[in-house]
Structures are given as C-alpha cells and as structure tokens.
C-alpha cells in the first residue's frame, strides 16, 4: 500500500513538474505538428496524397510516434540535474522512481500519439474502419515504446550520452514490437479482424510486459552512480 501511495504521489509530482514547464510540452507538440506537415507536404508534392495507401499512412504514423517517444523519454532523464537526483536518492526507492517514470512517460507519449493520430486523420485522411482496434493498437504500441525507451534512456542518460545513443540502443530492440504493432494496426483499416488477431494481441501485450518487468528488476542496479 505504501509503495502504491508513493508511486501515486511521485507520478503526481512528476506530472506537475512536466506541466509547469509549459515550453517542454509545447515543444513536443510543435515537434509532432511540424513533422506531420513535413510528411504532408512531401506526399502532396509527390502527388500521392489522393490515392494514398493505408500502409503508407501507418508507416509514417509509427515513425513519428517512435521519434516522439524517444524525445519524451530521453528528456525525462536528461533534464534531471545532479542535485535533484541526490534529492531523489534520499526520498524514494529506485522501484518507485522508475515505475513512476514509466507511468508518466507512458501517459505523456500516449497523449502525444493520440494528438498525432488526430492530426493525421485531419491532414492525411481517415483510412480507419475499426476505431476500437485503432485505439487499442495505438495504446499498446505507444505504451510499449515508452516502457522500452524509458529504460534505454535511463541507460543512455547515465552514460552521459546524447539522445542519439538512446536511438542506437533502442531501435534494434523496438523492431520486434514494431512488427507486431504494425500488423495489429493494419487490422483497423480492414472491415474485419484477421485470423491471428488474438495471438498477435497477446504477443504485443507480452512485449509490453517484458520491458516493464526488466526495467523494474534492473533499474535499481544502475540508478546510483
């Protein structure tokens, strides 16, 4: 109970800090907006926007979500100053710290990816036939990415590297989840779900759970310098 309460308060505090720095959220939203428009204009210029296939839609969507998630998770670690880290050491256990980081990052990237999805529907058209599947796979994919990249960003930030290191470390590991999620996501363009849907859903859930458990187990070893 104490653990849950601690996590809850920590999450609230993190969210409050995040919202107080309005420019951070605004910058991420701008990041999403300008990338979507970049995609829009490049497609428009090529003249493929009118009869664009849904797969292109989903590819661009997931690439943007991927990069946004990396940015969200990396900045959540890189902005922590040495002094604040010392404060955390004395205040909470590493599990509480990483769990609340995971939750906060998942929430923020979820909000951003839903935002991305909305702009995509406005700007690039709406190929979605089953909105429930769309939302489900969007949630699973975004949360899975943010779980994975939160831990990877923790490592990258500890090593004193930049966000490029987080990308290098994380992208190979994100391919498995990506391949499953794109499959699930593609189902939402069809009128009905395919044969292996349940199976794929379970695997996607598994790829959400594995990084979560590993992060909880491994983070205590790396969080003190």
């Amino acid at each position: 109970m104490n653990f849950v309460k601690q996590v809850w308060h920590f999450v609230l505090m993190e969210l409050r800090l995040e919202l107080r720095l309005k420019y951070a959220i605004a910058a991420l939203s701008m990041y999403v907006l300008s990338t979507v428009y970049l995609v829009y204009f490049s497609l428009e210029y090529q003249g493929v926007l009118e009869d664009m296939e849904a797969t292109i839609w989903s590819i661009f969507f997931w690439l943007i979500v991927l990069f946004t998630t990396v940015n969200v998770t990396f900045q959540s670690f890189s902005k922590i100053t040495q002094g604040r880290m010392l404060f955390y050491y004395t205040l909470v256990s590493p599990q509480v710290f990483i769990l609340s980081k995971l939750i906060v990052n998942a929430l923020i990237s979820l909000v951003l990816s839903i935002f991305t999805g909305m702009i995509f529907i406005f700007v690039l058209g709406n190929p979605i036939n089953q909105s429930f599947i769309f939302l489900l796979s969007l949630c699973l994919g975004t949360v899975g990415y943010s779980l994975l990249f939160t831990y990877i960003s923790g490592i990258a930030a500890k090593s004193g590297g930049n966000s490029a290191l987080a990308v290098v470390l994380g992208f190979p590991l994100s391919i498995p989840l990506l391949s499953i999620i794109v499959k699930l996501f593609g189902e939402s363009f069809n009128a009905q779900v395919g044969l292996n849907f349940d199976n794929n859903l379970l695997i996607a859930l598994g790829f959400n759970l594995i990084p979560l458990l590993l992060a909880l187990i491994l983070f205590p070893y790396i969080w003190r310098d």
């Binding site: 590991l173 990084p211 590993l214 491994l218 070893y221 790396i222």
Partner: peptide
Amino acid sequence: ASYNIFAFVM
C-alpha cells in the same frame, strides 16, 4: 551489464 540482460531477454 544491465543493457546486456535487457537486450538478451528481449
């Protein structure tokens, strides 16, 4: 070490 464990399991 922590990356190695994470990566290997994944």
